[in-house]
Structures are given as structure tokens and as C-alpha cells.
């Protein structure tokens, strides 16, 4: 079971969280004209990465905040975690 450092609460076990998908996907700007391809990429097209991956988790049984987790999909190592509004460099 993963051990995730919630930026709001500290180290918590995986069973307090729920997974929320790829966090590196950018939602197209609201007031901009969006092509079908762009929208398709946003809602459907994902890479199945082996290695470092930025993903969304929600601390559902804790503070209920959505957070970003940088994790290796092969080794499950967690490198860094971020608050929802933090930009990931």
C-alpha cells in the first residue's frame, strides 16, 4: 500500500485516497475555439507511461483536497507531491 505525503495533512496510507488520473493534461482555455483534436486529446488520449508520472489523487477520507503526486509507475516510488493549485516545475 502506497504511503502518500498529502501536502495538507502529512503522510497517509493509500486507502485514504482515490486516484484521479493524469495530472499533466491541460484543460483547453474556456473562451478559446477548441478543435476536435484538442478536445479529444484532453478527454481521451493518455500515454501509458512506464516511469515518472504526474497524477491526481483526492484525499477523500481526509481533507478532501485534490493533490498532484509525482510517482514512478513501475517502482511505485513517490518523488514529490503538490497542492492542486501548485505549478509543477
Amino acid at each position: 500500500m502506497l504511503y502518500i505525503n498529502c501536502p495538507h495533512c502529512g503522510m497517509r496510507s493509500q486507502n485514504e485516497f482515490s486516484y484521479g488520473g493524469d495530472a499533466s493534461v491541460k484543460r483547453p482555455e474556456l473562451n478559446k475555439e477548441v478543435s476536435d483534436q484538442e478536445w479529444d486529446d484532453f478527454v481521451y488520449n493518455r500515454k501509458s507511461l512506464r516511469g515518472k508520472h504526474l497524477e491526481l489523487w483526492q484525499h477523500i477520507s481526509g481533507c478532501r483536497q485534490w493533490i498532484k503526486v509525482e510517482r514512478d509507475t513501475a517502482t511505485h516510488e513517490i518523488f514529490r507531491t503538490f497542492k492542486a493549485d501548485e505549478e509543477v516545475a
Binding site: S18, G20, Q58, Q65
Partner: peptide, 12 residues
């Protein structure tokens, strides 16, 4: 509820 929180927290 999670869906609403997702919009609130991630897209500000």
C-alpha cells in the same frame, strides 16, 4: 461531490 471539488480546486 468529488466531481464538484475537482472543478473547484483544480480549475479555480
Amino acid at each position: 461531490l468529488s466531481h464538484l471539488e475537482y472543478y473547484l480546486q483544480l480549475f479555480a
